[in-house]
């Protein structure tokens, strides 16, 4: 019996997964409901999808969110990779403790605090140097990069921690410059982690309501802001349709990335084994 799951654990586990998925399934099912009353089934219909694609406000907000999320993810990956690299490869530098703190605190910091503090910074900066003038896409992007780079740092740091340093050392011994070592050895190996970090940062930005609400200005309503103002008034079937589309895209994306990463991992293991076999 040891090492196998007992009946009790299997039951509890299934309960947990049901808890995770029933709400999502209910969103999907009711998005195809004819009736406006979301919880009364009145026959199959795709009319809410048609309505969704005619909603200018939602479409514009989605476009803005995509833009911010893509720029944010790229910025967060650059800064997060640098931070993760610095923390895991440079054991000692002045202010290392502070840097560790600043990269892990955003992971748990309540969003209302982060949002308020970022806004007050932007207002103070505008008063002092006249930049950023007003609030909009720029301030949203800066705020998103700041909190999502912490997540990227964690992902990169844990990947680098499990990476064999001897590969990098060997390249150095053979006379490669640090920059070249990073580009030729480290970067290709941690690429899956960088990709995962990019997707994570993208999702965090795409999804953020609270911090964005503080630092956005008139005319810069992202998708979550529009959704929230609609949802506050109660359930509406076109939001269910929107949720279904988003769940579909994410499911495909996550499965594809998962398969890709698994493939990479297998190839890496094969390469390592082949390399060891050649030496032996």
């Amino acid at each position: 019996m040891i090492g196998r799951r007992s009946f009790l654990i299997t039951t509890l586990m299934s309960f947990g997964f049901a808890f995770l998925y029933i709400p999502i399934l209910s969103l999907i099912v009711y998005s195809f409901n004819e009736s406006r009353l979301v919880t009364v089934w009145a026959g199959f219909s795709t009319k809410w999808y048609a309505e969704l694609f005619q909603n200018e406000q939602l479409l514009n907000a989605a476009k803005l969110s995509l833009e911010v999320a893509a720029i944010n993810a790229t910025g967060a990956v650059i800064l997060g990779t640098l931070a993760g690299f610095a923390l895991s490869r440079f054991r000692r530098f002045r202010g290392r403790t502070l840097m560790t703190g600043m990269t892990s605190a955003p992971l748990v910091m309540p969003e209302v605090i982060t949002g308020l503090s970022m806004l007050l910074l932007f207002v103070a900066m505008e008063q002092a140097f006249g930049w950023p003038a007003g609030r909009g896409v720029t301030t949203i992007t800066i705020a998103h990069i700041t909190f999502s780079m912490a997540y990227v740092t964690v992902v990169i740091q844990s990947r680098l921690a499990s990476l064999d340093v001897s590969l990098e050392e060997a390249a150095m011994d053979l006379g490669a410059r640090p920059w070249k070592v990073f580009m030729v050895i480290t970067l290709p190996i941690i690429f899956p982690a960088i990709l995962a970090g990019w997707l994570l940062a993208f999702t965090l930005s795409w999804d953020d309501l609270v911090i964005t609400s503080f630092v956005s200005g008139p005319g810069s309503s992202t998708l979550p802001i529009v959704i929230f103002s609609k949802v506050r008034l109660g359930v509406s079937p076109d939001i269910n349709a929107l949720a279904t589309i988003m769940v579909g895209i994410v499911a495909i994306g996550v499965v594809a990335t998962g398969l890709y990463l698994q493939h990479q991992e297998r190839r890496r293991e094969r390469d390592v084994q082949a390399a060891l076999a050649n030496h032996g």
């Binding site: 209910s26 969103l27 795409w206 979550p224 959704i227 949802v231 359930v235 929107l242 949720a243 988003m246």
Partner: peptide, 14 residues
């Protein structure tokens, strides 16, 4: 990975 806001919203209907 799916929207936090929409997942909370799903519970209103439930």
């Amino acid at each position: 990975w799916t929207s936090f806001l929409l997942r909370v919203y799903a519970w209103i209907g439930i």
